[in-house]
Design a protein around this nucleic acid. Sequence first.
DNA 1: CGTTTGACTACGC
DNA 2: CGCGTAGCCAAAC
Length: 136
Amino acid sequence: MFYPPNPTEFFATVWEIVQQIPPGSVSSYGQIASMISPGNETEPERMRHLAPRWVGTAMRKTPRGKSIPWHRVINSQGSISFPAGSAQAEEQRRLLALEGVAFDANGKVNFARVGWRGPDAAFLRRLGLLPPHLLK
DNA sequence: CGTTTGACTACGC
DNA sequence: CGCGTAGCCAAAC
């Protein structure tokens, strides 16, 4: 797959992006991965579609106590990626519920309603990321 | 130092 | 809708 040329830097970028997600909104591993460039625009398709997994790796290593809203990142299916019923899954669901993000009977959110639109232009410029309309 | 393990996703059934 | 699989390698054991 695509893999971070510099994992440390990649992880830090992921965390910065996650901090941009406002309360009440959720993003996905794939959405975040698609924002990070360079690389994902030129990467072969077969490599590119594995990038989200690295976002998952970054999330696993999320530093605590740095006010990073890790719970606002879910998978592309709109559901929590921790095993259903696990303590971590319950915690994530609880934190999201506090922000008004609800899951349906199938354990999925309505992306159309609570999906994050993406970071603002100033943030993109600061990190040198590509604007959403240039992303695939 | 060898083996196992992922906070993923698109796609086929 | 749900389940299984390929792709792919840095961490965690």
